[in-house]
Amino acid sequence: MPNVVLVTGVGRFLGGYLASRLAVDPGIDRVLGVDTVAPPRDLLRRMGRAEFVRADIRNPLIAKIITSAKVDTVVHTSMSSQGATARADMKEMNVIGTMQLLAACQQSSWIRKIVVKSTSAVYGVSPRDPAIFTEDMEPKELPSSGYAKDAVEIEEYVRGFARRRPDVDITTLRFTDLVGPRIDDMITRYFGLPVIPTVLGYDARLQMLHSEDALTVLERSVVDDVPGVFNVGGDGILMLSQAIRRAGRVSVPVPGLAVSSLKSALGGMQNYALPSGWMQFLNFGRVVDTTKMRKRFDFEPRWTTRQAFDDFVNGRGLRPWLSHEQVTSVEHGVNDAVARIHRGRNNA
């Protein structure tokens, strides 16, 4: 059981809610939340006795916090895929931040455990990939840009740390795309677009993870000892085309060659900026095997991919162009009409 837990990235959903969950656990003495920006007020209130420290993990000051508070468990959730910030800043925050954090941990003799939030994007995207990734598979094509590349580099540093400090337990969690009513991430932004651009002739296989399940897995990795690398994702998949239909959206297939110009056009709009590599992901998607997580965590995700996505659509209040009722009533209408015509013929 950890005594003092430090959570990075508490300004955002996962870090903030994880800190609030840990704060209500009487077994944990102290919970420290670190971020460069303060969590929104409602989240801060939720965090209860967890202490917020405004600090930048890229700053060596973080080492002082870790040693002086005798932190024994670090949860690194700040790895970000958000396209709203400039790419250079994001990379700096992700990669340099992780390096500094790990360097600080290496210095401290109190550290017992590190939990790192990673992403299944480390497997890359390629048509030559097997349909389903297990943890021991290497990517056919290393992600060459964007947050996927950051994640690959971060995992590299984490492995390096593990070699230097074999006494520290490390849990690396490779999350599939997070969805949930309160998640603001690239996939939720994408489905929030008024019309959804897709790549002509391709349909991605999407595997999603409900944010509550993600929180549970994070919490369990803090409280229990489950070292190792784990894929974390919901059961089953949705095809991209299917997800768009379930959300009641309209898709616009764009020829592959026009994608980059479209992307730069969208990139001009702050809210809809999509990270690089995203369109490549839309071609094929990615599915991971979660057997290892189920076994070692003894945990079944409560939401399947489909349920998680539906919960996101309902929670976000995305208004479909055609409602379920409208479609069903059209179906009944046509059915009745056909029956009436047939009856008319038979009578005549």
């Binding site: 349909a131 389903i132 349909d203 296989r205 595997q207 089953g236 239909r245 379930r246 055609l322 479609v327």
Partner: peptide
Amino acid sequence: RRRVLGDYGVDEFG
């Protein structure tokens, strides 16, 4: 109707 609403099952291979 199933196609319009996306109400069908797809296995993990697609």
